[in-house]
């Protein structure tokens, strides 16, 4: 697969899922197990992505400047600082540590 094929395939798959939502009868969501599982899958994937993005470097687990940056981000989200501010502060924390340590 070339990078273009991957980009287009993944993009079309996401759009297709969005369209599917408009074709499905709303009664599907009345089944609690389906709705609950869909919500929890999103939670699990985001949590896994936080871990992989914070600790992973290829297949290695590496503790570096990303860890304190993510801890700071979690604290800021907990005190309801706006999304974009937190993302910028997290980048600044990691960049600062890398510049001075």
């Amino acid at each position: 697969m070339t990078m273009w094929q991957i980009v287009l395939l993944a993009g079309i798959a996401c759009v297709a899922l969005k369209l599917a939502g408009y074709l499905v009868p709303p009664a599907v969501l009345e089944r609690p197990a389906a709705a609950r599982t869909a919500d929890l899958v999103t939670v699990a994937m985001l949590a896994a992505l936080v871990v992989v993005q914070t600790l992973g470097t290829g297949q290695a687990i590496v503790l570096d400047a990303r860890v304190p940056a993510v801890v700071v981000a979690a604290v800021l989200f907990a005190v309801r600082v706006p999304f974009i501010v937190v993302v910028i502060v997290a980048a600044a924390v990691a960049a600062g540590i890398r510049a001075f340590v």
Binding site: V43, L46, A47, L49, V50, Q53, T54, A65, R66, A69, V70, A73, A74, F77, A78, F83, V86, V87, I88, V89, A90, A91, A92, V93, A94, A95, G96, R98, A99
Partner: peptide
């Protein structure tokens, strides 16, 4: 060097929170 990898991790935290 600019901490953009940490920014991506923080963005996932923000979506999860």
């Amino acid at each position: 060097r600019y901490g953009l990898d940490a920014a991506a991790a923080a963005a996932f935290v923000g979506l999860l929170w």
